[in-house]
């Protein structure tokens, strides 16, 4: 039986990614933040300070868990040790959502700790859908899967990313975490129309949105999560809200993490947009 003040069913508004440099300020000031997203992989140790802090945050806020370790697109067997730890964490933290990426991270038991691209084919669709279903069964709950940013496409690909994602939701009944920055980054890198992409996403599946800042390199956009959200991403975000409604939105800022105040200012911009569409 949950003892948390906020039960894990509904979140709304603009949440923040929880980063260790902000713990103290959050504990001291109990800021008015609608929810926090925790990087699940950081809280899977058997003990130690991280999990204690996570529980302390959970006492005052709803949380979501977001990870990079499921390696859903890998051809390795699913890592049941990882999934067991994740299940234990979800039992303990009672998150509203658990999410990971449409990507692969490991092969041959070796981990790259990065989100790697997949060819969008019938074979891959079958493969990843099967694994998502297994994960959902193991965890005993639906998960959200997120569209990755990418720098590579394949000549074997025979469907768009949006078609691939739609196929996944149809086969697995999972929900979606739509990363608007990733759509924009991939659209520039692979020269497609991000607004057309949005139209292909099944509206009833989008439960959470991510926003982040990319870095402009010479010949491509690089998804660093180290900047403020750029204007074309805000534009695309407004189009997404128009299509999907006021979906709970998270600002991700993982490298060169700014002050908590700066992060909150960025979230307030998203909050204003959300109000216009709620």
């Amino acid at each position: 039986m949950s003892s948390y003040k906020f039960k894990g069913h509904e979140i709304q508004g603009a949440g923040l990614g929880l980063r260790s440099s902000h713990y103290q300020e959050i504990f001291d000031t109990k800021p008015d933040v609608p929810w926090f997203e925790l990087l699940s992989d950081n809280y899977m140790s058997d003990g130690g300070l991280p999990i204690i802090r996570a529980e302390k945050i959970r006492e005052d806020y709803p949380v979501t868990l977001h990870g990079v370790g499921m390696s859903l697109g890998s051809t390795d067997p699913l890592n049941t040790d990882y999934l067991s730890k994740l299940k234990a964490l979800t039992d303990r933290i009672e998150p509203t959502y658990v999410s990971d990426h449409i990507a692969w991270v490991s092969v041959g038991g070796k981990y790259t700790h990065d989100l790697l691209p997949l060819p969008y084919t019938e074979e891959t669709l079958h493969h990843i859908s099967d694994r998502i279903s297994q994960v959902q069964e193991f965890l005993g709950r639906k998960i959200l899967v997120e569209n990755p940013s990418s720098y590579m496409t394949f000549d074997s690909t025979d469907m768009t990313e949006a078609e691939f994602i739609k196929g996944i939701t149809q086969r697995t009944d999972c929900d979606l975490l739509l990363d608007i920055n990733n759509i924009y980054v991939s659209a520039v890198n692979h020269d497609f129309d991000p607004y057309e992409y949005l139209k292909g996403i099944p509206s009833d599946r989008v439960k959470e949105i991510h926003l982040a800042g990319y870095e402009k390199m010479d010949n491509y956009l690089f998804d660093t999560h180290g900047y403020q959200v750029h204007p074309p991403v805000w534009d695309l975000y407004r189009a997404a809200l128009k299509q999907f409604g006021a979906i709970p939105t998270l600002i991700e800022w993982d490298t060169d993490v700014p002050s908590f105040t700066t992060l909150r200012q960025e979230a307030k911009k998203a909050e204003q947009q959300l109000k216009a569409f709620s």
């Binding site: 899977m44 370790g69 890592n79 990882y82 070796k110 981990y111 790259t112």
Partner: peptide, 11 residues
Amino acid sequence: YPSGSPDLGNY
């Protein structure tokens, strides 16, 4: 020494 765990903290 490849990384054998999804948790970078184990590496």
